[in-house]
C-alpha cells in the first residue's frame, strides 16, 4: 500500500526550474491535506493504540513505534470532524516535533506531491477558524485543494482552548 511511498526524509527529484516543496498528502473526511515531507518520519498502517485516560480529547492514545512511545493525535477530532465510521481504523503519519514523535491519525495517505510556490495561496478569510489555525495556506491543484498543515500548531491544543 501507500506506506512504501516515501521513506522518511527522502526527497523526490525537484522540478529544476522552480522552487518547489514536497508534501505528503493525507486525507481527512474527503479533504486533502499536505504535510511537509521533511517532517514526516514514518507512515504506518492501522496500529494498536493504547488509550490514555484523562488526556485531552485530541489525544487518541499512545503507540509503540519500534520501541519508542509515540503519542497518537486524532486529527479528525483536532479539526472538529466527525469520527470515522465504526470499525474503520485509519493510518498514521509519524512526525517529529521538537524531538518528540507524534503520530497523526488520518483516514488515508496519498502520494508525495512536489508543488511550486505558484499555486500557493494564503488562507482564505472564510476558512473555519479551527482550520485556519492549523493551516499555513492552500495549494490550488487540478480539481482539488490541498491544505498545508502546520504540524506545530496542530499539536498545540492550548491554542484551541483559547478559542473556546
Amino acid at each position: 500500500m501507500s506506506q512504501q511511498l516515501v521513506p522518511a526524509g527522502q526527497k523526490l527529484p525537484k522540478i529544476a526550474t522552480e522552487v518547489s516543496h514536497d508534501y505528503v498528502s493525507i486525507f481527512l473526511d474527503g479533504q486533502m491535506f499536505g504535510i511537509p515531507v521533511l517532517q514526516v518520519q514514518d507512515v504506518l498502517g492501522p496500529q494498536r493504540i493504547t488509550r490514555v485516560p484523562l488526556a485531552p480529547p485530541e489525544v487518541a492514545g499512545s503507540l509503540n513505534l519500534r520501541g519508542r512511545i509515540v503519542t497518537a493525535i486524532d486529527l479528525r477530532r483536532r479539526l472538529r470532524l466527525n469520527p470515522l465510521e465504526d470499525g474503520k481504523i485509519g493510518m498514521s503519519v509519524v512526525v517529529d516535533q521538537g524531538g518528540e514523535l507524534y503520530s497523526l491519525l488520518v483516514d488515508n495517505v496519498g502520494e508525495v506531491l512536489s508543488l511550486s510556490a505558484k499555486t500557493f495561496e494564503a488562507n482564505p478569510a472564510t476558512l473555519d477558524p479551527t482550520w485556519r489555525e492549523v493551516s499555513v495556506g492552500i495549494h490550488r491543484l487540478d480539481g482539488n485543494l490541498l491544505i498545508i498543515l502546520d504540524v506545530g500548531r496542530a499539536l498545540d491544543f492550548a491554542v484551541k482552548v483559547e478559542l473556546n
Binding site: 489525544v59 512511545i69 503519542t71 518528540e100
Partner: peptide, 15 residues
C-alpha cells in the same frame, strides 16, 4: 509525552 505531563495519575509509560 509533554502533552500528557499534566495528568497526575501517571508517572510514566512503558512497553
Amino acid at each position: 509525552a509533554p502533552i500528557l505531563r499534566d495528568i497526575p495519575m501517571f508517572s510514566g509509560n512503558t512497553i
